[in-house]
Design a protein around this nucleic acid. Structure first.
Lengths: 245, 245
DNA sequence: CCATTTATGGTCAGTGCGACTATAAAGGTG
DNA sequence: CACCTTTATAGTCGCACTGACCATAAATGG
């Protein structure tokens, strides 16, 4: 940042790409758009767009998220999470020109009707992992976003961002199981969550049937805690050399 | 990323900023450069520079790190760590023009002679926290980098990046104590580190005096483990509401 | 020789967690 | 209705890890 040599740089386009996750019907879904033009015409891609001259990347990401999903503003409302992931800047990641993309991961509670933005061809929720190769380096971005979300589930109360305002512990557990692709013991999960102050707050007297079967479950709200101490570790699939997956 | 409207964006300058840490004389130090021109002339700033047209941000960061410190290439050599932090893109973060900066955190083992790059005014190692306000939003970047490093010390073997190729457990513990600004019980630290497979490897028969006093300590090398399971948690300064610092 | 310093080894109690069992409360089915 | 299935909830047991210690070993400096 020393010495602004006007000839030392060429113009870069700066964009945002969004990995928007939700849990629907016990499966992790991602919001994808179908590309209408070359390159990668007809392939699925992450939603995104240019950062406008008077915007930060965060503002642009919130705007794009609202455009694509019709959801309220980025960080304000309850049960919505938008977080910067990292920046992808390989010189050849877009064959047309130099594009530097700031990637974001977003978690939304339930798939509202997808509101196709003006410039978005078609946006759809697709199960994570099912669509073939995505356009550009979006497979990598999506995988990185998934890794980040999995990791943050361990030491933050982020999972409640996937849940409606009121939820049962069974629903919260299913969110964990869906994202981690692992099974959790209901009793132990309950003990852990309730033992972590600020994770969830009980709604006195409220109860609801979850799957139409079984005993009705008590309802909870997301608590104020942002970090979990101690963390809620995912089951360790032990690998031989001290480097569990 | 739908529809490339050539008029929808203005050129952005893309730069990298580096928060380069080291531990020297039991204190955490940061590599800073003194700005020679406005704005913020005379103030300290993080080293950095433009991303060149054929570079990724990672390549640019490695190049800048090499230029400023004279150290070998970015990710290759032992005991060197370079990691993307996040991107800062507030529209007014540079008063002259629109600059989007990809920030990196770097850890280097010992302060080699600072090799002032051609464009860098003067680079110096300064104790973390001592210099007044940095230029631009570099205070925030530096604080974010420090947070990241502190957190990564818990669940990765990153601390060995601050150590020379061969080190004693006392030296490694001092690295933790310096970065975390906390005291650790030597015996418990030892038990934890040696009990984590792949964290460090003993060098049979080797021993060295650390501070000139006391019993000579056995020497160790950095192990192959990248992640620590279970993590080496820093002492919890308990705060009342489930959200320890 | 002795005090000091650092390294290293060990004990002990408390905490958290995985595995498991038991009970409660709903619906479904004969 | 009796009984099974399903889900929620409560509790128990043993293991692993950790923090707080205590003890010993091996160096230096008076």
């Amino acid at each position: 940042m020393q010495g602004y040599d006007k000839y030392a740089f060429e113009p870069f386009a700066v964009t945002v790409d969004l990995a928007v996750f939700t849990v629907r019907a016990g499966r992790l879904h991602v919001l994808l758009v179908e590309r209408g033009q070359e390159p990668y015409a007809g392939q699925w891609a992450l939603p995104g767009g240019f950062v406008l001259p008077d915007e930060s990347a965060e503002t642009a990401a919130g705007r794009e998220l609202a455009e694509e999903t019709g959801l309220a503003d980025s960080t304000g409302s309850v049960g919505l999470h938008l977080e910067q992931l990292r920046t992808y800047s390989e010189p050849d990641r877009d064959p047309r020109m130099r594009v530097v993309s700031v990637a974001f991961a977003a978690l939304v509670p339930d798939p509202p009707a997808v509101h196709a933005g003006s410039d978005a061809a078609r946006a759809e929720w697709l199960p994570y992992g099912t669509p073939g190769p995505l356009a550009f380096d979006h497979d990598r971005i999506l995988a990185d976003a998934h890794d980040r979300v999995c990791a943050k589930f361990e030491y933050t109360g982020l999972a409640t961002a996937f849940c409606p305002p009121e939820f049962t512990l069974g629903e919260l557990r299913q969110v964990y199981e869906t994202v981690w692709a692992a099974e959790l013991d209901p009793a132990n999960f309950r003990r852990k969550v309730l033992g972590t102050t600020g994770f969830v707050e009980a709604i006195p007297g409220a109860a609801r049937l979850t799957g139409g079967r079984g005993k009705p479950a008590a309802l909870y709200r997301a608590g104020p805690a942002t970090s979990l101490h101690p963390p809620l570790l995912r089951p360790t699939t032990v690998s031989p050399e001290g480097k569990p997956s």
